[in-house]
Design a protein around this nucleic acid. Structure first.
Lengths: 233, 233
DNA sequence: CAAATAAGTGTTAATTTGACACGAATTACT
DNA sequence: AGTAATTCGTGTCAAATTAACACTTATTTG
């Protein structure tokens, strides 16, 4: 036996929703699609799963191709498989979402795709079902970040509490009381205060913090409660 | 343009992890695989995604074929796509998990597959990566049920608080204080007390409850806190 | 009628949460 | 040199939530 009989084979693609935070707003990285159909239109970065390659590997490869980055946070989101989602040919797309430190991203690597960062409230019309993928990715990021220490993946190794709070506020589109925020964040014991300050944000400057890497890995599954009234979101 | 060039096509399958609760323990429904390879071995119920059919539809179809049930809780779990996971031919499997009222399941419908219910601590060796799928499904059920009112899907329309608690205790492999449990469950206002009692469990009998269907649907996303110290699980 | 069994219910102390305001450090300006 | 402007960093209190804990009630059976 070399094949299953009378079954339909189809293409498998991977599409990546890549999140970044520039200090102002939460953004995703979009590219101009490189092939027909819809060539040149705005699209998520994606590609076909290759022989001998798992979907995870495909996602890692695609992410590296576009951003040059490895070892970033990457998680399978959902598999989109409506029969007509790609008009050319039946294609399943396994969507992944990635969280990267936007400052490590080097645009020049991938001029081929003319990538651009878009804030989430200004996402253009995307090909196929990619807008739906973005919507789902955003919802999952909000859901998960309310429960787990996830958003650190979007910041540099050293960051300040005001930067962290600003990130949370961007993700949830609201503002938090900074006294309660710092109390909650620090009570996780995930952060290690540094001796130096970041002077860019204010005259006084704000202390840098780093993640306690051991605790971070050990406590990733831990439930947080940083977002007040998360059930109302 | 009718096809993408130089790409590998593959099969897409759906496999279902079907949970049920018989009052004693949490179980999953396994079948004897109907085709080669590994024909006759224990397996999750599955099948290939057909032309014109989405993965969701395939899962619904497969579930109905095996159990006769429609409209049950069904959720996409994860897509498994290791290149060698099926030795015959490259096949992606989109795993779904289902929660059914075990009493509505009618075995005779599907003698073809010789299905059997297995408690989670007695799952036999399954084909391919199906044991991994079961493990992931169980973890996700535990995770999700700690946050959302999900386990009602495993009970009949009318159920008692002791039955509900016993279900939660099965899912988490631990026991809860019944005073705290009933207080928390009732504080959601999702349950409506009935006038009649279930006399099977004790001499005194226990009041039946029904779900408030409206509130249940509206509050499904609401966070619960029924499981004490859920972060320690 | 006594014993056995499971159902149903309330209190308290500890912890967590959210709301709230002011002093400290630094820079830029006059 | 002094003052105004800006953002950082911190503490208190009242309310709500949580976990721990034990006894009475209803019913059946012997």
């Amino acid at each position: 036996m070399t094949q299953y009989q009378n079954q339909t084979r189809m293409l498998a693609a991977v599409d990546c929703i890549i999140f970044g935070f520039d200090g102002e707003s939460l953004k995703i990285l979009l590219v101009h699609r490189g092939i027909e159909p819809e060539k040149g239109k705005w699209s998520l970065m994606g590609g076909f799963v290759q022989p001998g390659e798992s979907p995870d590997h495909a996602a890692i490869r695609i992410l590296k191709t576009l951003t040059g980055l490895e070892g970033v946070y990457l998680e399978q989101l959902y598999t989109f498989g409506e029969p007509e989602r790609d008009p050319i040919e039946r294609t399943m797309s396994i969507a992944y979402f990635a969280l990267i430190d936007i400052h490590r991203y080097e645009k020049q690597l991938s001029d081929e795709y003319q990538p651009e960062w878009f804030p989430l409230n200004k996402i253009p019309r995307l090909i196929f079902d990619h807008n739906e993928m973005v919507k789902m990715a955003r919802a999952k990021l909000q859901y998960k970040a309310a429960l787990h220490p996830l958003l650190f993946e979007l910041l540099p190794k050293k960051f300040t509490l005001p930067q962290l709070q600003s990130l949370y506020e961007s993700v949830y589109g609201t503002s938090f009381d900074k006294r309660n925020f710092s109390r909650k964040v620090l009570s996780t014991n995930l952060l290690v205060k540094q001796e130096d300050k970041y002077k860019g944000g204010s005259k006084k400057g704000a202390y840098y913090y780093k993640l306690n890497a051991k605790k971070y890995k050990a406590n990733f599954q831990a439930f947080l409660n940083i977002i007040p009234n998360a059930h109302l979101l």
